[in-house]
């Protein structure tokens, strides 16, 4: 984590992850009426799925282009 924090791509990576976590804490206020997506997805599940997809994209970009250690 210290290595990640030392360069700009790493800092951007951490900020993206942090913002996505804050977003997860923000959205539950919209869970209190039945909303169903794509025929079966409930709102709490969809929110988490979006979180995981954001983490996946950020991880793929950072770890495979800017990973701070040598392969």
């Amino acid at each position: 984590m210290r290595e990640i924090f030392r360069h700009n791509p790493g800092r951007i990576f951490l900020i993206v992850l942090l913002l996505s976590l804050i977003g997860m804490l923000w959205v539950p206020r919209y869970f209190f009426e039945p909303r169903i997506f794509f025929g079966w997805l409930s709102a709490p599940y969809l929110a988490g799925l979006i979180l995981i997809l954001i983490w996946l994209i950020a991880y793929l970009i950072y770890f495979f282009r800017y990973w701070p250690y040598r392969d």
Binding site: P28, S42, A47, L51, I52, W55
Partner: peptide, 13 residues
């Protein structure tokens, strides 16, 4: 109901 899935999303992260 479905809100407990939030525990799992936290765990994955």
């Amino acid at each position: 109901g479905p809100a407990f899935v939030y525990f799992i999303w936290g765990c994955v992260a």
